[in-house]
Design a protein around this nucleic acid. Structure first.
Length: 593
RNA sequence: GGUCCGGUAGCUCAGUUGGAUAGAGCAUCAGCCUUCUAAGCUGAGGGUCAUUGGUUCGAAUCCAAUCCGGAUCACCA
């Protein structure tokens, strides 16, 4: 049990004894005591004054005296200032926290809850390479999954490949028309980039054709529909859904190129999935559900044969669920996917890591699932994150300001290598070890930079700032870990030494133990909020405190053997917690750097 | 226009769910390596928490209005 909840229970019991009134944890607050006051934890008394008909001073003194008297091993002293009861926690209590957990690599992780959460993330289109926005998505999804696991859930990491639809047909048409049979193998290109180039080519050709048509006097809106290359793409989608063999063959070939490219990137960033779903499968189930919905009267057909759902009663609009030509739209497959996921995992929650521009889409999805009476609907949770912007503004494909994921990763690792060489601390590393270290530092920096921001907020990605290895960065935290390990390489804590608590803890020692004690609660909070930035910020805070501690106090040459053992335990536990926390963000920490 | 999200130091971000004098990093300035890793540490300056009103012992945090920025309201995904 955490200190905070221990104090809470003690206070509740005390109030029951002293005033014969029952309170719950929600009736009053326990905070860490502000540094300018004496004490470790503070009970805020204001909310209790009225029900107890007490003055702040009287209540504080009575409660403080009672608590210190009845829990001498927990509270060593107290003071009351205005409505705040400041409690000193006994040194022996902190000693026990340290002693019980310093070797535990699983510290902070919860027991299994027996509940399943499905997390969907990445979800790329198979027509262009991954960019910075995808990286935020993948880092978030992967990290949230790990955090939920640590909090005791069974997690299934899933990915839906958006492998069908008009956008896929566009790159297929362009390849057919312009590639002359070129392949990634023949050109040496990475598969996803190769296909992406044809998608871009489609766009430029399309624009060209529109210009030609409007030059002949056709109105622009009509030209957009009549452009031959667009008509070819639309026809291809119809052929694809009809299962025309040569279209399917082409589709399979091009998708396999893209997957090969994605796999390389996933592997580099250490991301993985337990289960892949393919839109090309789920859309059929979606269409079946649309059919059922029509029977049930949840959907209705318009004159042109397109199928709609009326959500005006729920404050939204009418929404199309199937085109007049019978082909599926985006949401059709999502309805199918929701059912498929539920059938497969009977989940308690189904998290979709998808950008906030799709808030409306997920509102609609949940409503439709509910109207269809699907059991999958209630667990749907859209983890909506903000867009990644550059200092110059939004990334735009058309303006070529999209930051490519592979380029970004290369750059980070390159700069990490440069920086490490400049410092020259690992000259004895083998080339393989160096390679691994550069990866750890470069990728760590990228992940940290992205995950440190609250997911809901838009974030500005400043390339220059992201490769800064000072301050609030992954390298700072990694460095702190390496520093702790350097000490531990000289000497390990003696497990058989029994710590004495007659020497008072120094402020920096106590600060670190208090921070370490909070780690389990931090995991819980991050899981509850679906927010990896909670973990990342915590790791930074811990690393910062550790660096102050290490510069201020000697560990190996501590004043007494008792102090030395205490500090060695602090080093060990800090290293463990940093490694554990960073792992939840998908960031590795080196032994040396 | 409707709906949703955001606005905290020059910049990038925290702020323990309503608590004490609002915190970090970067940038600027001043110090600290003969010591377990200086990718570090210590200190200084920098704030009308968008604005106004309200709720109460107490508001960056809750409510209302206004201003600014973004997303969305597609037979794109």
């Amino acid at each position: 049990m955490s200190v905070t909840s221990t104090i809470q229970s003690a206070v509740i019991a005390a109030l029951e004894q002293l005033y014969n009134q029952a309170f719950s944890a929600k009736d009053f607050q326990i905070n860490q005591t502000k540094p300018e006051f004496e004490g470790d934890y503070t009970v805020v008394l204001f909310s209790l004054l009225k029900p107890l008909k007490q003055s702040p001073d009287a209540l504080g003194k009575t409660l403080g005296a009672y608590l210190t008297e009845t829990h001498p091993s927990l509270f060593s002293a107290f003071n009351v200032i205005k409505g705040f009861l400041n409690l000193n926690i006994a040194g022996s209590y902190w000693g026990a926290v340290l002693n019980d957990n310093y070797q535990d690599g699983m510290y902070g992780r919860k027991e299994k809850k027996g509940k399943t959460i499905v997390v969907e993330y990445a979800s790329p289109n198979t027509n262009k390479p991954l960019h910075l926005g995808h990286l935020r998505n993948i880092f978030l999804g992967w990290s949230i999954s790990e955090i939920l696991k640590a909090d005791g859930y069974d997690v299934v990491k899933t990915c839906i490949a958006n492998d069908r639809g008009i956008h896929i047909c566009k790159s297929m048409v362009a390849w057919q028309k312009f590639a002359n049979g070129a392949t990634p193998e023949s050109t040496g290109a990475k598969g996803d980039h190769f296909v992406g180039d044809y998608y871009v080519l489609f766009g430029t050709e399309y624009k060209k054709e529109i210009q030609e048509l409007t030059a002949k006097g056709m109105p622009e809106a009509e030209a957009e529909k009549e452009a031959p290359i667009m008509k070819a793409a639309q026809q291809m989608l119809v052929d694809w859904e009809a299962g025309k063999p040569e279209v399917i063959a082409l589709w399979k070939k091009m998708n396999s190129w893209v997957y090969a490219g994605f796999d390389i990137t996933y592997k580099r960033i250490g991301s993985d999935f337990d289960k892949m779903f393919y839109e090309s499968d789920t859309y059929l189930l979606g269409k079946k559900l649309v059919e059922e919905g029509l029977q049930k009267g949840v959907f209705f057909k318009k004159e042109d044969n397109s199928v709609w759902v009326d959500l005006t009663a729920d404050g939204l609009d009418e929404k199309i669920v199937q085109r007049k030509d019978g082909t599926a739209v985006y949401i059709t497959q999502d309805i199918g996917l929701a059912v498929e996921k539920y059938e497969a995992y009977r989940y308690d929650q189904s998290i979709y890591v998808v950008g906030d521009e799709q808030n409306y889409h997920f509102k609609v999805l949940q409503l439709i699932c509910r109207k269809l009476g699907l059991p999958s609907s209630e667990g749907i949770y859209h983890l909506s994150y903000g867009m990644v912007e550059l200092p110059s503004g939004r990334m735009k494909t058309r303006e070529g300001t999209v930051v490519d994921a592979d380029d970004m990763i290369d750059e980070m690792i390159k700069v990490a290598a440069q920086k490490t060489e400049e410092l020259g601390k690992v000259k004895d590393f083998t080339p393989d070890e160096l390679d691994k270290l550069y990866n750890t530092i470069g990728l760590g920096a990228l992940k940290f930079f992205i995950l440190r921001v609250d997911p809901r907020k838009r974030m500005i990605f400043n390339p220059e700032e992201s490769i800064d290895f000072h301050g609030f960065t992954a390298s700072f935290v990694q460095f702190s870990h390496a520093r702790a390990k350097a000490i531990l390489r000289n000497e390990q804590p003696d497990q058989h030494f029994s710590l004495q608590h007659n020497e008072a803890l120094l402020p920096l020692e106590k600060e670190l133990i208090i921070l370490l004690e909070r780690y389990p609660a931090i995991i819980q909070q991050a899981a509850y909020e679906h927010n990896p930035s909670v973990i990342v910020n915590y790791c930074y805070e811990l690393a910062k405190a550790f660096n102050s501690f290490v510069t201020e106090h000697r560990v190996l040459k501590a004043e007494t053997e008792n102090k030395k053992q205490l500090r060695l335990r602090i080093c060990q536990m800090t290293a463990n917690v940093i490694a554990s926390g960073m792992a939840l963000a998908g960031i590795e920490v080196p032994e040396r750097m």
